[in-house]
């Protein structure tokens, strides 16, 4: 376990980068969302209409703002940190386990930050202006559990996806990584096609599970990415 924790500490070496940035990203989403509504308010007059305020429940900012950063964290971990870990006498298996634990921490901090944001959103009566950032439809309109778990698995999928492609690059080089990427893309399209041809069944699941269906799919993707990176890291080289 000690060896695994060392790799996790390597992942956490710059804590601001892997734990602090999600906070700033969400802060920027709040500021931008408030700014956009302030501009609308300037044009239409304050207070904002119920219709405008409710329309912000479709705000996707929280979901779409962090993935780019999180994917890059995963890629850096699987390439740069991997190289340094091997240089410092770490085995591939322990590196993977320690880094995966680090991903869990980043995801937990990201999800917790969103939950705290939701609390602040309620305390400030939706950021003083009526804008919805965390209290949105896709996360159950204030469902704390759905918000936490939804963002946790999304962050894990992004980190693990970045790590998967970083590890594939280390194991197989550029050309074969692109081929793997294409294969994964084709597999994803095949699954979508399968879902489309079974629309009635998917809609029945959607009715039964609600937003948790999407959460489960993202969780399965994250697990598949983690398993793929574990398989690839055994062949990865510097």
């Amino acid at each position: 376990m000690t060896h695994v924790l060392r790799s996790m500490r390597l992942y956490l070496a710059n804590r601001y980068f892997v734990l602090g940035v999600p906070f700033f990203i969400f802060a920027v989403v709040v500021v931008l969302s408030v700014a956009i509504l302030a501009i609308i308010g300037t044009m239409q007059g304050f207070p904002l209409s119920e219709e405008v305020r409710e329309s912000t429940r479709n705000n996707f900012g929280v979901l779409f703002s962090a993935p780019g950063f999180l994917v890059s964290v995963g890629v850096y971990a699987a390439t740069r940190n991997f190289a340094l870990a091997l240089a410092l006498g770490v085995t591939r298996r322990n590196f993977w386990a320690g880094t995966a634990l680090g991903f869990v921490l980043t995801s937990a901090v990201t999800a917790t930050t969103a939950v705290v944001g939701l609390g602040l959103e309620y305390l400030t009566n939706h950021w003083f202006i009526g804008v919805h950032v965390f209290d949105v439809h896709m996360f159950g309109n204030g469902d704390v559990t759905l918000l936490f778990v939804g963002l946790f698995v999304t962050a894990m999928a992004c980190l693990a996806g970045g790590a998967l492609f970083g590890t594939l690059f280390r194991a197989y080089g550029t050309v074969r990584t692109v081929m793997w990427g294409a294969a994964i893309g084709v597999a994803a399209l095949a699954l979508l096609a399968l879902a489309a041809t079974n629309e009635a069944r998917v809609l029945a699941w959607q009715d039964a599970w609600g937003e948790w269906l999407s959460v489960s799919v993202v969780a399965a993707v994250a697990a598949a990415f983690l398993a793929g990176s574990y398989a690839a890291v055994r062949r990865a080289t510097v």
Binding site: H3, A13, N14, F17, Y76, A77, T79, R80, N81, A83, L84, L86, A87, L88, G89, V90, T91, R92, R93, N94, V238
Partner: peptide, 23 residues
């Protein structure tokens, strides 16, 4: 993959990669 053997090694390469965020 024996971690006790691995930690007996140190090889910082001439063109060692570091995380861009590391100071």
């Amino acid at each position: 993959e024996d971690p006790r053997q691995a930690q007996r090694l140190c090889f910082i390469r001439e063109n060692q990669l570091y995380n861009d965020a590391f100071k």
